[in-house]
Each structure stands twice: as structure tokens, then as C-alpha cells.
């Protein structure tokens, strides 16, 4: 049975156009997750005090982007006041660019199979810009992950899962409730 399955998979893989199709699927997956992640920064920022505390010291107008090399999807975000605003798809003159070297590396992180710290350690992410500011951005990404992902996944992708209090869980609920409208608003 295994042999039959392997043979079938190999035959599918050898079809002309399969690599292009595979790349297309990966592109769509990355693009979709980034479309959710962008608005998630806004929603988490609205409901989570530690997020606002983390960006308190950032200079006004700091822009950062997350994306996939060489020409994959990307999103750009900007600090305005006490919030992070999602500026939409594409690179919009960011000060810091964090780019995955390939779709496979991007999917590992975006699908929460691997934490961003491990992706850094495995040379999967290229950084352009000030490295100290990149560390600050990475901490904010971790907070977003902590409020966006289920507890078990958070334990796997973060070096240390944050201590969740009752108030944190309530905030997490507010994030979930606010996420879909935020994503839809940006899609329209």
C-alpha cells in the first residue's frame, strides 16, 4: 500500500507544471497568513497592554515589513501614536525588512511549526536595517503570536510562553473577536 502511495505521489510530482503549482499554493498560503497577521498587529495592540508598553519607546513612524524573498508577498506596518497600523501588502519604504529566504522557511514560521527565534538561528530570515530595532520588532511579533495562537502552539514556537492571567485570557478572547472584522476591513 505504501509503495502504491509513494508511486502515485511521485507520478503527481513528475507532472509538468507541478513545481509551478506547488509554488503557487505556497505563495497563496503565505499571502493569506500575512493578510491575517497584518491586521492582527492592530487588534492585539488595541487589547493587550504589554504590546503597547513594548512599542512605547519606538520612534513615531517606524516602519517594518515581513515578507518572502525574492518576490514573494510582504506586508508593511507602521508605529503611529500608541498603536501599530497595518499599511497593507507590499514593501512601503520600511526602515526594517525581515524577509524569509524561501517559501518553505516562511511557511515553517507562518504556519507556527517553528518559532521566529529558531528561524533566525537557522539563517532562514534576512534582516535589513537596525538590528537592535529588529529585536524590538521581534518581541512585538512574539506578543502577537502569544495572543493569536492556541496555548499549546505558543509553548512550541516561543522560547518562553508568557504567564497568562484571567485578564490575559479575556484579552485573548477580545483579540479573537476583533480579528475577523479587522481582516475583512482591510480586504475591502
Amino acid at each position: 500500500m505504501d509503495d502504491v502511495l509513494k508511486r502515485t505521489v511521485n507520478q503527481v510530482r513528475s507532472l509538468p507544471g507541478f513545481p509551478a503549482l506547488q509554488a503557487g499554493v505556497k505563495h497563496v498560503l503565505c499571502s493569506t497568513v500575512l493578510s491575517v497577521l497584518g491586521p492582527a498587529f492592530e487588534v492585539v495592540g488595541r487589547h493587550v497592554p504589554e504590546f503597547r508598553k513594548e512599542i512605547e519607546s519606538w520612534e513615531e513612524g517606524r516602519r517594518f515589513s515581513l515578507g518572502v524573498l525574492p518576490n514573494g508577498p510582504a506586508i508593511t506596518l507602521e508605529k503611529r501614536g500608541s498603536a501599530i497600523h497595518y499599511l497593507g501588502k507590499g514593501l512601503k519604504s520600511p526602515h526594517i525588512t525581515m524577509s524569509f529566504k524561501s517559501y518553505d522557511s516562511a511557511l515553517l514560521v507562518l504556519m507556527s511549526i517553528m518559532g521566529s527565534h529558531q528561524a533566525f538561528a537557522e539563517n532562514r530570515i534576512l534582516v535589513k536595517g537596525d538590528l537592535a530595532q529588529t529585536m524590538e520588532v521581534n518581541r512585538v511579533v512574539n506578543i502577537v503570536n502569544a495572543y493569536l495562537l492556541p496555548g499549546m502552539v505558543v509553548k512550541k514556537v516561543l522560547k518562553r510562553a508568557p504567564q497568562m492571567t484571567l485578564k490575559s485570557y479575556i484579552n485573548k478572547g477580545k483579540v479573537y473577536a476583533g480579528l475577523v472584522p479587522a481582516v475583512v476591513r482591510h480586504l475591502i
Partner: peptide, 15 residues
């Protein structure tokens, strides 16, 4: 403050 923003911190095994 400067320590937690240093790039080397990304590679430390513990947070």
C-alpha cells in the same frame, strides 16, 4: 535595556 535589544540575544537558548 540595551542587552535585550542586542542581536546576540536572539541566539540565546533561554528568553
Amino acid at each position: 535595556s540595551a542587552t535585550i535589544n542586542d542581536g546576540a540575544m536572539a541566539f540565546n537558548p533561554l528568553e
